[in-house]
């Protein structure tokens, strides 16, 4: 099975790094979608089948937390696994996000190995 993955970050640099990192993993990837904020991400989610979302938190227009809340309220989107990739190192924030249902939290800077391992684990669990 090949996956469609959505990367949400206002930094084009980070979107490119994540996209390249995904290409280096052993994941079978069908297509990588990109969005610059939560609003663009929701539009992408409405129009495309997405298997996994990687999102930043602090973004203009619509933040990552607002995106996660909007997905949780939508019956079609609530089961899509979400991984947060952020500079925020607050354990209070991470606990809050885990309560909202995110699968994993990756702090920037990250290594390609860490990203690959986490995504692998999450997608394997989803398919079991």
């Amino acid at each position: 099975m090949a996956y469609n993955i959505l990367i949400v970050d206002d930094s084009k640099t980070i979107r490119s790094i994540l996209s390249k990192t995904l290409g280096l993993t052993r994941l079978a990837i069908n297509q990588i979608f990109e969005a610059g904020n939560g609003k663009e991400a929701l539009e992408c989610l409405q129009e495309n089948w997405i298997d996994l979302v990687l999102t930043d938190l602090n973004m203009p227009v619509m933040s990552g937390i607002e995106l996660i809340d909007a997905m949780a309220k939508d019956g079609m989107l609530k089961d899509i696994p979400v991984i947060v990739v952020s500079t925020d190192g607050s354990t209070t924030r991470i606990e809050e996000l885990k309560e909202k249902g995110i699968r994993e939290y990756i702090r920037k800077p990250f290594t390609p190995e860490a990203i690959g391992e986490i995504i692998d684990r999450i997608l394997e669990a989803v398919n079991e």
Partner: peptide, 13 residues
């Protein structure tokens, strides 16, 4: 964009 992202990470740390 690269400079913004670096500052973002520095600030978080």
């Amino acid at each position: 964009d690269a400079a913004r992202e670096i500052l973002n990470i520095i600030t978080g740390q």
